[in-house]
Amino acid sequence: MKIDWKGVMPAVTTKFNNDDTLDLKMFEVNIKAQLAAGVHGVILGGTLGEASTLSDDEKRILTRVTVNIVNNKIPVITNIAEQTTKGAILAAQKAKEDGASGLMILPPMRYKAGDRETIAYFKEVAKSTTLPIMVYNNPIDYKIEVTMDMFEELISLDNIQAVKESTRDISNVTRIKNRFADRLKILCGVDTLALESLLMGAHGWVAGLVDAFPKETVAIYELQKAGRIKEALKIYRWFLPLLELDINPKLVQNIKLAEVATGIGTENVRAPRLPLVGEERKKVVAIIEHGLKTRPKLPEYKNIALTS
């Protein structure tokens, strides 16, 4: 399936049963809620997906199950976060075998690669597959920045098509647009900068709180796209305290609590993560409960016409 690299693409959580096995029933409930809300793609195996704790078999099961659930309605994108180039190439091969439509690739894990090494890593993986690729640029969390000059080299390969922009520098959207126009599609990877990034020209939003609030997330995207900025802004302002739960070391636990509150997830996480307790839990629950009490009534946001 061709990927347009636009719209809302949830970085979905992985659901676990009480015995720490994959909870594929609740996983399907959540994916179907995302489809019903109108998301434009699904991303598996990111930080929110607890990918670093998943076995290779579990990753492959999740890809196959998701491909089956979405049934060609939207692309399924598999995240690759490996320590070696060889491992990343093998992961890309398996993702394609399992039916993924594209890849999101992080720089090498653990080793802080230099610019030349990072470029070589992305290029070798890209050359090994025909799947389209989104580079995940998050120097805050992963300590490696993919600079404009580095992207200049990377886009010599046709299947390197997009960037998940998570530098936290909103002006980077304009830098990318000025340098590459639409050759490099931009998807905001920071929930609390999403509307700002879209208004500056980003093509989409790799979202986190969408896992619990899919309709509100897609509504913001569709309304701003149609030029109905005031309506989008009203929802976004309501959403911000919830979105801030994503910009936190406990983002997985936070968002899973929110999924429970909206009926499309479970709280179970995989060790070494543990569910929230005490004051930390009370604060998160209070934010979620306030969000639910003040949840806005959404306008009809699907298939809305562009304003002149």
Rank of each mutant, 00 (worst) to 15 (best):
A271F: 13
K225S: 15
T266M: 06
P249G: 04
E280T: 14
I220A: 04
K256P: 10
W238I: 03
L242S: 09
F239M: 12
G227H: 13
A219C: 15
K225C: 14
V277S: 05
N248K: 13
V277D: 13
Q224Y: 13
E216M: 11
A232P: 03
A271H: 10
L223W: 00
I247S: 10
V260M: 08
D246L: 12
L257W: 01
V218Y: 07
T266D: 10
V269M: 10
L242N: 03
L223E: 05
K225V: 11
V269Y: 04
A258G: 06
I264P: 00
A219W: 09
E231Q: 14
L243K: 07
L243H: 07
V277T: 14
L276S: 09
E267W: 01
A219P: 01
Y221E: 02
R273K: 10
P275Q: 10
P249V: 10
E231G: 01
L223V: 03
E231V: 03
L251Q: 14
T217G: 00
L276G: 08
F239G: 02
E216L: 09
G265L: 12
L245Y: 02
I235C: 02
L274G: 02
E244A: 14
N248C: 13
L251M: 15
A226I: 05
L274A: 11
P275L: 06
P241Y: 11
Y236H: 14
E280H: 07
N248L: 10
A219Q: 05
A258K: 01
K234N: 13
D246Q: 11
A226P: 10
Y236M: 08
L251D: 04
T266P: 05
R270Y: 13
K234C: 04
E216C: 07
A271S: 13
